[in-house]
Design a protein around this nucleic acid. Structure first.
Lengths: 224, 224
DNA sequence: TAGATTGTTAATCGATTAACAATC
DNA sequence: TAGATTGTTAATCGATTAACAATC
């Protein structure tokens, strides 16, 4: 079993290797790759050691070979059909995101509950009614669903996805989803990321001479 | 010092408390709040213990009081001016995202390098040239920047942001950013999240009777 | 007082890192 | 052989969890 923290870094290594390959680099050391991926080389070697021994001592790694091995380990040598539910601003952006297609994901359908959106074409795909979910999942053997609806609709959508056989969900709605054992949910929450930054920013502000935090803290703090 | 893992969960607790308050709930136990936030109650109590003792033994937590304490700890009782650079599909979605405003963040400017976009209005804000960054950061005391550009432009944008005094960056571009000590970067990478799901999906596929992974694995695997 | 629930302790688990033997 | 670099070991660090004493 590969540790979860390692799994989360494999796509980063994959991207870094692709960037190296695009620059015509055929071989790299763990130091090179680590720096391209923004981690330290001990961690990189430890991570790669879970996959096998794909390097050569004294030499380094063959970029293409390692890239293939990591892609195979992640599972992106095959194509993954994906369905996106909720075609608001974010759904639009996701449908148009070229990084999906280029990394082994294929958006096979865009669904929305709003009749006004049905029939519109987004990123070359026609928006369909949410009720088509079952047929689409069956037809395309969809295993991964993306939720980009408002928070209030997210649990319903997740329930329906699970009922149709989807076992991996990427959730952009700001809601905690309850799903049965065996279904994976990953959550991307834009405002949570900003709040984490705000927390650290607030703590920096003490010594800063600029930035809103310093100004606001001075106003709030009293003792300033 | 509050552990980083705890900091990352505080916004989740904050959201759960807001949901409870919206439902008219005034008091909750650690068990109630933990389940609303999707964590176990031991972890929740441990997390809250880093902030202070805001509960009452035998009774639980006052929802509004705890909510305020967490908001104060995170720093979202004050307003954070934010600038978004890169007004493509994702930048549009971010500019329109109501979750920012409602959680203490105010988008004070939208910037793009593309002259064709300048002057357009997105979410009620006019898109300005990227070169206006300095003036905007100075005028609004911006401490947090959001990068939603293509990967190739991200490092340049980050460098300029740092030079202007921005010390927290939320990066949506699929690129590793190098920044000086003291600058925080958080990264949201849509395709990495999908790849992590694909990894786990691939491993489930063995026993599954449906899903693309099962089909593809059977085709690939040989031994099937 | 009895029941409920917090805040904290201590044990466990998982992740990171430096150092280095193995080996190209 | 000498230099370089991997893959692995072991120590350290941080996060999670169960259990329970404190106390409302």
């Amino acid at each position: 079993m590969i540790p979860e923290a390692t799994v989360a870094r494999l796509p980063v290594y994959l991207r870094a290797l692709t960037a190296l390959a695009d620059n015509g680099i055929r071989t790299c050391s763990s130091e090179d790759l680590a720096s391209a991926a923004g981690v330290n080389s001990a961690k990189l070697r430890k991570d790669l050691s879970y996959l096998g021994s794909y390097g050569t001592r004294g030499v380094g790694y063959d970029v293409d070979y390692l890239r293939y091995q990591i892609a195979r380990e992640i599972g992106v040598t095959q194509d993954w059909p994906v369905v996106i539910v909720g075609i608001g601003n974010l759904g639009h952006a996701l449908a148009n995101y070229s990084g999906f297609r280029s990394r082994g994901f294929r958006v096979v359908a865009l669904l929305d509950a709003d009749p006004a959106l049905i029939g519109q074409t987004v990123a070359g795909v026609e928006v369909q009614p949410f009720d088509d979910l079952e047929e689409i999942v069956r037809t395309h053997d969809v295993a991964i669903g993306v939720i980009a609806t408002p928070a209030f609709a997210a649990q319903d959508v997740a329930d329906r996805m699970v009922a149709m056989g989807i076992t991996s969900i990427l959730n952009f709605a700001p809601a905690v989803l309850t799903v049965p054992e065996g279904v994976d949910v990953r959550k991307v929450d834009l405002s949570i990321e900003l709040q984490i930054l705000a927390y650290h920013e607030q703590r920096k502000a003490g010594g800063a001479t600029q930035g809103a935090a310093a100004a606001a803290a001075a106003t709030d703090g009293g003792a300033a």
